[in-house]
Nucleic acid binder design. Structure first.
Lengths: 367, 367
DNA sequence: TTGTAAGCGTTATCAG
DNA sequence: CTGATAACGCTTACAA
């Protein structure tokens, strides 16, 4: 009788359910992992008992045994990047539809220690909304640090898979910590393409869309602002150059800058002050594009110089800006990444085709 | 010799370390949890062995035993809200300084299931950067759903504490799932103030700062846009009314709207089109303030009507806007929340004093 | 189909 | 200080 001590309100365990349903522990376990393998009669009794007791299997105890193929981790590089948020949401939804739990976690620690000033990180791997447009260029090159403890803990949970969203600092370590889990990269291009499954937007197509659009409405002198702050920037700059070369246009109208508004402002100024300035400027992301717009307006060139962004974040939709932007289709990126994990095939590198969202920042004027 | 089977590359366990260091398992355990309690000689040997083997204690196995006072969970309501990101970063930094690991996790699922369109959530509890300013008002009232599975899993990890950042849908369930963990709320005002520790910005002071500033530069007819979309909005609207009443100003210049740009635009329009329009408009957050600015500019009233936002997000610092905004000091909020967890005292409700960041959107004109 | 027993990796207890 | 032994809650052979 005095089996359970005083009326302490302990969390019910499988043992409790088993006792109440008058079956053995392992049958209860079966009832939850393979319900079809247990007789309907007892199954019902077990489920009732569990219900009555408010029992739910302890996932941690579960994870101690081995790979849990009912849950995957989602590691997001920068939680303040709205682009990543879209990818994560889509991935989670897809995983949920496939019966998997997606545990999303932030993997990157901000600058060195002092959580005092909301200064935040600068360039973040892909064009996010970024931080305050203060002119603090890249102070310390890459202050972002991988939170190895968190990654290790996630690995201890033994998920069956991991989706890495965005560029994480120490990827090798992450993969190593994951043990047997399959890793899929989303919205990033991992350093070591050791056949790692990757789902990302096709930036080459994206910039071709932009250049095509601009040439279609008559622009011949098209510039680009970006190229700095990370791999994504480099790729987009290269894609711009390729697209421009394809069209036989001047490829020298490039000014370096990272993902921040300040960088866009400065770089655009440089371009606009040249002897033969561009009539259209493409930016590496929306935030930098806002800087470009500011530079253009400052020179009284509004409605004269077309501006485009990238990522189609909510910034582009802002009424005061109404920025033409490339939509990478982040939802599809997240969904595909999750699908790769659900169906264990290795598709190598999946490129998601972006589309162009045309707004008034690039409305025809010269054409 | 054939103790470990074939050359399978299994993760090293405490047993392996114990064997290599020629001590018992429990001594290894001690070496990691209470290093001072083991003789320097063997301690070194154990640490060396661990190092050589690449051993690190399995946190999951650890959690199975009971409360882990070396790690706390951080549950963030909306990961795309930059305000929360700042709070989270500060909390993590403070926890790290206190030797605790902060596992940050997203707890809220976006709208009903379809992760296809990047539509995203509408009002998000406190003034975030929000989503695209599309005019999709509050379609389904509150589509945000608590991810109970994730919360349950976090609870299974038995953290010693939990920081809830922002308004989470089903708070009671969260608290229940946390078992013995102490819960502290940050940047939100929980529904059931059952003495729950809370750290949040003092919005009353914030709006008083705004109103004081505006009256100081000569404004007498001050309006407010907000009040809808969540508790925070209601509170700020009330704080506005109080501040205005204190000053003996007209308190009827209020138009309802949520945290979106579209709402700010519409509500501001309503105010500006009145017979006796305001000369200054305060908004519930920065994004809505951008809508207000757009409405003001549309009517050719730029430099005539002052506009202020709230949260001092990067949006306020945008060059094209340069918005005066209340800075809630999110870093302090996050830090204090973490401190509450580190030192187990229950301070009840902690109000962090905000400051006003004055920018050109409210530059004196009439004064 | 159902029950028994042995782990998963760590911590806690309690003898030496 | 050290070292067996028993939990923690669940899964998984293996036996009935």
């Amino acid at each position: 009788m005095a089996d359970d001590g005083p009326g302490a309100t302990r969390r019910p365990t499988m043992r409790d359910v088993a006792d109440r349903a008058a079956v053995s522990k392992s049958l209860v376990s079966l009832a939850f992992s393979a319900p079809d393998a247990v007789s309907p009669h007892r199954l019902a009794r077990i489920l009732d008992a569990a219900e009555a007791l408010g029992f739910r299997p302890n996932r941690v105890a579960r994870s101690l045994n081995g790979l849990r193929d009912d849950f995957v981790g989602i590691l997001v590089a920068d939680s303040r990047n709205p682009v990543f948020a879209e990818v994560v949401d889509a991935a989670r939804a897809t995983l949920a539809a496939g019966g998997r739990l997606g545990l999303v976690t932030s993997a990157v620690l901000p600058g060195s220690g002092d959580g005092t000033a909301g200064a935040g990180t600068a360039g973040d791997g892909t064009g996010g909304a970024g931080t305050a447009g203060a002119s603090t260029a890249a102070t310390r090159a890459d202050v972002r640090r991988l939170d190895t403890e968190v990654v290790a803990m996630l690995g201890d949970l033994q998920p069956s898979g991991l989706v890495v969203v965005g560029s994480v600092p120490d990827v090798d370590r992450v993969v190593a910590a994951m043990g047997a889990a399959r890793v899929v990269f989303a919205s990033t291009r991992p350093e070591h393409p050791l056949g790692a499954a990757t789902v990302r937007g096709d930036d080459e197509v994206g910039l071709r869309l932009v250049v095509d659009h601009l040439t279609a409405i008559g622009h011949r002198r098209i510039g680009h602002v970006g190229g700095a702050g990370g791999r994504v920037a480099v790729d987009r700059a290269a894609a711009f150059s390729a697209a421009v070369a394809e069209r036989g246009l001047d490829g020298t109208l490039v000014a370096e800058g990272d993902f921040t508004e300040a960088a866009g402002f400065r770089a655009a100024g440089e371009l606009l002050d040249r002897a033969d300035p561009p009539t259209a400027i493409t930016a590496v992301n929306d935030l930098a594009a806002l800087g470009v717009v500011a530079a253009v307006r400052q020179r009284g060139l509004a409605d004269r110089v077309a501006v485009t962004g990238y990522d189609n974040t909510f910034l582009a939709a802002l009424g005061a800006v109404d920025l033409t932007s490339v939509d990478p289709d982040n939802a599809t990126i997240g969904r595909r990444a999750a699908e790769v994990l659900l169906s264990d095939a290795d598709p190598g590198e999946v490129l998601v085709t972006p589309s162009l969202r045309i707004r008034s920042s690039s409305v025809p004027r010269s054409g």
